[in-house]
Design a protein around this nucleic acid. Structure first.
Lengths: 154, 154
DNA sequence: ACAAATTAATCAGCGCACTGAGTATTTCGG
DNA sequence: CCGAAATACTCAGTGCGCTGATTAATTTGT
């Protein structure tokens, strides 16, 4: 009786959206390479030589998760991981030739998948969709690190 | 150079949105009870006596995941799980008094959290937000089970 | 120059999410 | 009535995602 309507809960909708995407990715893009793995590969194609932490920042993964994703890509030979001679704490990462090939192939398939995924929306609605989600996600991420000195907390 | 802009990838946005929500939930709602656990509890408040599979359907969790979520709620004494005397394969689930208490408390906090989460959007935008996400998620879930006999596949 | 603080990465532990395979129970067909 | 199919649940295995604690390297403050 006191139950709540979950269709008005953004968190629940976000989870359902992500699950739906996960399934579609598996059937239309790749069963071996996951969406987060592709995101990491993509970040390294854009900026080869990044370290682990920075890649995580770029794609929105925390230190532990990024370490696992990278270790899987490394095991499959899709990226190179070498100690930074300038700073022995860091590992520098860059895609291998295989990594570049996989990235190219998956880029095409991902574009196709996105069309199918967004097909229920008109072009205008798609733009609104991106804008609204991004604003909510950005704001929530902002709540998490209120410590940026350039945007004082008061 | 051939890298892709992830801000136009709904899957990537969905993941970021869900992560942002996860963090906010942890700080504003509960550290013990997760959002999927609340969803299950909520489904059982609405319809006490459901079996596991049906609860999973209601909240959008597959057979394996729902089993784990339920076993955690059971361990914490928030629900009762008894064999259906009519059908020995099923377990019938209902919230305990403790489960009802937790559900009530978390309902209030969840409402507050949703307000904070959606604060960057106007009331009109929030309605659009729900509508668009739901349409995309519904459509993608529909691609997954085209086998409903009442809506023939051809 | 050297102790203290900071930073990058790892590890252990928990929870969500999916698939494929296996077990037990019920239902269906002949 | 009884063997085959369907159904509910469990189990093993993989991957994403978070926190808190630890280790190793660099930077900072005297």
């Amino acid at each position: 009786m006191a139950a709540v309507d979950l269709t008005t809960h953004p968190g629940h909708l976000a989870r359902r959206l992500q699950q739906a995407h996960y399934l579609l990715w598996n059937t239309m893009v790749s069963e071996e390479t996951t969406s987060p793995q592709f995101a990491v590969l993509n970040a390294l194609v854009a900026e080869p030589g990044l370290d682990q932490r920075t890649v995580g920042e770029r794609v929105g993964l925390d230190r532990s998760t990024i370490a696992e994703v990278i270790s899987r890509l490394d095991r499959r030979g899709l990226l190179d991981k070498v100690r930074d001679p300038q700073d022995g704490r860091r590992f520098l990462l860059r895609p291998t030739d295989d990594g570049l090939r996989v990235h190219r192939k998956l880029s095409v398939r991902t574009a196709r998948m996105n069309q199918v995924f967004l097909a229920p929306l008109s072009a205008g609605e798609q733009a609104v969709f991106f804008d609204l989600i991004q604003r909510v996600a950005d704001a929530a991420e902002g709540l998490r690190n209120p410590a940026d000195p350039s945007v004082a907390t008061n």
